[in-house]
Design a protein around this nucleic acid. Structure first.
Lengths: 200, 200
DNA sequence: GTTTGTTTTGAACATTTGTTCAGATATCCT
DNA sequence: AGGATATCTGAACAAATGTTCAAAACAAAC
């Protein structure tokens, strides 16, 4: 035996993914060339193919990693109060997405550039996250905390609303992320609340 | 004089725009070649350049037309009840966007493929529409019908929520567009309403 | 310091890209 | 019909694309 596997692979591999993430987010998957990624890493094009079988897999891996991380990071206590659970999801979602603008952007914008097989996998993960939220809404409807006609629709509405923050929020802007989070929580909780005049 | 301008231009021109709209929406601006557009129209590549100076202008024109149409189609009565005005905007927005899925998709996804000058123009139009909604929310806050901390944030939240419908709604699905509209109106009105029972 | 395997280079490949333009064709006006 | 012009073809251009691969450079184990 000689040199063990990964002595440089451990360095270059992540740099390739980081460069691809950055460039795909800024310019779009189709508009980024493998040569551009290589230049960003500081390496020749051919070297990239030690770390990905092709450009498509690079995109897929980035999206899958993002969604895996999202699902792994979100903790939900099914026994807690539905309002508290929803509040936690709103706070979690906003902060998690704020920390990863590039990955979020790619995950929403580059779906059409996935092969059908890859798309199906990503879609499954996205749905799994949606289902976590829907479970909370359903629980709240049962307890009477929430009043929504269709939990699936409410789920999508809430996610669209929260994810939209990434398109305009800037840390150096007028409001802090905590201000924004507080106001979104206000709107979300009102939107799904039983509107009789009782709950927060 | 002889042949007047536009004898065929009137036919091919719109077909070029229609083909570009369809293909850009399906595959993304960067992934569509001029030859692909020409094939869709049933013409050779060179002919396209009678209708657009370049590919970029084709994209810009599609986006600008869409936003011009949006602003022209939206009617708002500043003297009416804020709740009625908001309800009308919600209904208008949902139906207008539902009728033009390709244009909507492009207008949201291809912003980064615009030159800076073109981007600035499109952004101005987008902001103008946002401002129409914000004016309604502001009016409602003054009358006490609405309670939102920051009207700009609420504006963006509502638009993101409504536009998100296009990503999942299918006419042959479980619910009609009117069902969906009714439920979104419920959520939007609750989200911005002065909450009856309690406070922040 | 040699051996052994990993990683990178540098060049090559067949396609495809946006755009141009001279010449051919089609259409309209008189 | 004939002349004028609008429109389209077909070929060409240089540049860029994703991917491959032999050979070179490198790093660790002995």
């Amino acid at each position: 035996m000689a040199r063990t596997a990964g002595s440089h692979s451990d360095i270059t591999g992540p740099r390739v993914r980081a460069a691809a993430l950055k460039l795909f987010a800024r310019q779009g998957f189709a508009a980024v060339s493998m040569r551009e990624i290589a230049r960003e890493v500081g390496v020749q094009v051919g070297a990239l193919y030690n770390y990905t079988p092709d450009k498509q897999s690079l995109l897929f891996d980035l999206m899958k990693s993002h969604l895996d991380a999202l699902l792994a990071a979100f903790r939900d206590d099914a026994d807690a109060d539905p309002v508290a659970r929803l509040k936690h999801l709103v706070q979690f979602h906003i902060h998690f997405h704020h920390d990863r603008p590039d990955a979020v952007f790619i995950a929403y914008m580059e779906l059409r550039n996935l092969t059908p097989a890859n798309f199906a996998q990503i879609e499954t993960l996205r749905r799994a996250y949606e289902d976590r939220l829907e479970a909370i809404l359903r629980a709240g409807v049962i307890t009477g905390d929430f009043a929504v006609d269709d939990t699936k629709i409410a789920t999508r509405a809430v996610i669209a609303m929260l994810t939209g923050i990434n398109t305009w929020f800037r840390a150096d802007g007028r409001l802090s992320l905590d201000d924004v989070t507080a106001q979104y929580w206000q709107m979300v909780s009102k939107a799904v609340s039983a509107s009789d005049g009782s709950s927060p």
